[in-house]
Design a protein around this nucleic acid. Structure first.
Length: 498
DNA sequence: GGTCCTTTGAAGCTA
DNA sequence: TAGCTTCAAAGGACC
């Protein structure tokens, strides 16, 4: 990662990054974020990478794939395995959690009976704790909490896994809390039960509470819809049993997703935004603005999350959720249907999207506050036709935006947008999306697990300094204008780059 | 009801 | 192995 290397040039970039994107809520977020300890972040990330590499077994993936057997079988074995492993691994690699509040030994308030996870309740920032609960508890992946924390003695060392078994991660326990409906069935004290006990043969808790990652193959993944014993449903709701749909094990959440989960509510509250797309943009920038330590928490959480996921679903592979992979492992009908759907989606995109880089051009270029410049489809949240029409996005009428011409495509607006927010002084990390190619390609690893160095090219360091400075001058602060702000920044950037 | 948008990261696939 | 693709969450908007 180029950014990781220290150097004068990097510094420039770093400064820019910091100032550059303040979104709505950022006024409040203060300079603390801007003050950036980017350098430290870079260092920390580097260390995390090492740690991650050391802790994780390189063969885990292979093992996982190689054991597409009965999950039930695994569960049984797994249970036995845990018994043994937990003993031998106590005080293992995670005996010294990097974060004090970690692992989350307590059932987070939001998931306790009578407590809710309302946005207002989710004010706890990444670095702040309240009620003695870990600040990240709200991140509980697989959503709202379908699982309660497990005891701190469970093993997590995946590197030792040479077989099918995945070790339960004590730290991961905190990620799972009880589902709203399950709370009543499991008392807080039960949250201490190990996953091995909590989960049934199919990842479903004996009480019928399924793993949060398990969701019906169709429809939106509403948490309450998840489970309730859909996967290998034990004796759960009869109603659900009637549903022919088979569950889909979702991918474990990555660091950013975890961050989003926690901060979304906060951003919504601060910015009064409702549109996820806009919120996510903000979150993306905030993510880059996080200090190394803060990001490290999420990377660590994500890492453990993956480990837990592997333990719970040893036979699962990300491929299972790929449309392409539907034929093989997931030969289930539901998956096939799902695959068709996905395939259709992709085909549709290909049809309408000749330009690989694609969609959301107007949005990205003009921003939310310049919607008058958007093409019709973009206003309707559909794919930008300007791009499709070959020429690229026409420049906005605004003089300020006049310079914004459609780049030949290799340099989509999206790319530019990314470049505004890159934190990374000293090269730290985040090369950010700027490196993304086409619709989603990411080429640079960002942190710990982020791929072996060099695997992906990091282009973030290319971020123009001038652009960032300009952005810093912007004074949009109204939280309500966050989205617009974001867009505004983009526009600025574009102007500058031109 | 399905899709889009938007973000970053992980993992799978392909050449 | 580099590069690309897909999916993960979220929820309003749109068709």
């Amino acid at each position: 990662m180029p950014q990781l290397s220290s150097g004068g040039g990097d510094d420039l970039g770093a400064n820019d990054e910091m100032i550059a994107f303040k979104d709505e809520g950022e006024q409040e977020e203060k300079t603390q974020e801007n003050a950036f300890t980017e350098r430290d972040l870079a260092d920390l990330k580097s260390s995390l990478v090492n740690e991650s590499e050391i802790n994780q077994s390189p063969t885990s993936a292979a093992v996982r794939r190689g054991h597409h057997g009965e999950q039930r079988v695994f569960q049984d074995k797994h249970r036995e395995h845990l018994d043994g492993v937990s003993k031998q691994q106590d005080g293992g690699m995670y005996k010294s959690p990097a974060y004090p509040g970690y692992p989350f030994l307590m059932l987070p308030d939001p998931y306790l009976p009578n407590s809710s996870v309302s946005p207002s309740s989710n004010k706890v920032s990444v670095v702040q704790q309240s009620h003695g609960m870990h600040p990240l508890t709200s991140l509980l992946p697989y959503s709202n909490d379908h699982f309660s924390p497990s005891p701190p003695h469970l093993p997590t060392d995946m590197s030792q896994k040479t077989g099918v078994h995945r070790h339960q991660s004590q730290d991961l326990s905190g990620y799972y809390s009880l589902p709203p409906g399950g709370v009543g069935q499991i008392t807080p004290s039960m949250s201490w039960f190990p996953h091995s006990l909590m989960l049934g043969p199919s990842g479903v808790h004996p009480t019928g509470i399924p793993h949060p990652a398990i969701v019906p193959s169709s429809g939106k993944q509403e948490h309450d819809q998840y489970d309730r014993g859909m996967y290998m449903k034990p004796q759960v709701e009869v109603k659900r049993e009637k549903e022919p749909k088979k569950p889909v094990i979702k991918k474990p959440l990555n660091a950013f997703m975890l961050y989003m989960k926690e901060m979304r509510a906060k951003v919504i509250a601060e910015c009064t935004l409702k549109e996820s797309a806009a919120i996510n943009q903000i979150l993306g920038r905030r993510w880059h603005a996080l200090t190394r330590e803060e990001q490290a928490k999420y990377y660590e959480l994500a890492r453990k999350e993956r480990q837990l996921h592997m333990q719970l679903y040893p036979t699962w592979s990300a491929r299972d959720n790929y449309e392409a992979g539907l034929s093989g492992v997931a030969g289930e009908k539901s998956k096939a249907d799902w695959g068709k759907k996905k395939r259709r989606k992709r085909e549709k995109q290909q049809d309408s999207n000749t330009d690989p880089g694609s969609p959301k051009k107007c949005r990205a270029r003009f921003g939310l506050n310049q919607q008058t410049d958007w093409c019709g489809p973009c206003r309707r949240k559909k794919k930008c036709i300007r791009y499709l029409q070959g020429g690229g996005c026409p420049s906005p009428s605004s003089s300020d935006l006049s310079a914004i011409d459609s780049p030949p495509s290799p340099c989509p607006a999206r790319l530019r947008l990314y470049r505004q927010a890159p934190p990374s002084p000293r090269g730290s990390p985040p090369p950010s999306p700027s490196t993304r190619r086409s619709s989603h390609t990411r080429s640079h690893p960002r942190f710990p697990s982020e791929q072996s160095a060099g695997k992906r090219a990091d282009l973030c360091h290319l971020v123009p300094t001038a652009t960032l400075e300009l952005s810093a001058k912007q004074t949009l602060c109204s939280s309500a204008l966050s989205a617009a702000k974001v867009a505004g920044l983009s526009l600025k950037v574009l102007t500058e780059t031109h």
